[in-house]
């Protein structure tokens, strides 16, 4: 079973707040799922290349330029933000 510390470490990496009592729950649940993944160890994967994408896709290239119509869109997108200031997203302090 994965440890309390491991669960807390993963949650922190993922920026997920976790209540004390939830740690044990996730310990159990994640462990049972990770045990199930052990099944893959039965497969001989030596000399096998990984597949990240099922269809061969072409790279798409374009000029890196600001489009005029983007301005209006940006305004719309900013309106969705919880806090903004002078056309920027506003966040809480990082340094204490």
């Amino acid at each position: 079973m994965i440890s309390r510390q491991e669960v807390q470490h993963i949650a922190k990496l993922a920026r997920l707040g976790l209540k004390e009592k939830e740690v044990e729950k996730y310990q159990k649940e994640l462990s049972s799922i990770l045990d199930y993944f052990e099944k893959l160890k039965e497969v001989d994967i030596s000399k096998i290349e990984p597949t990240s994408h099922s269809i061969a896709a072409e790279n798409v290239i374009r000029e890196d330029e600001v489009k005029r119509e983007q301005r209006a869109k940006n305004k719309k997108l900013l309106e969705l933000a919880p806090k903004t200031k002078n056309g920027h997203l506003k966040v809480k302090s990082i340094l204490k």
């Binding site: 994965i2 990496l13 993922a14 997920l16 707040g17 976790l18 209540k19 996730y26 994640l30 990770l34």
Partner: peptide, 19 residues
């Protein structure tokens, strides 16, 4: 925000994937 905003299964998968 992520603790209060996401449900159980979403948090489980985020943690699984992060792991």
């Amino acid at each position: 925000s992520r603790e209060q905003g996401f449900g159980d299964e979403v948090r489980r998968r985020i943690m699984l994937g992060t792991y």
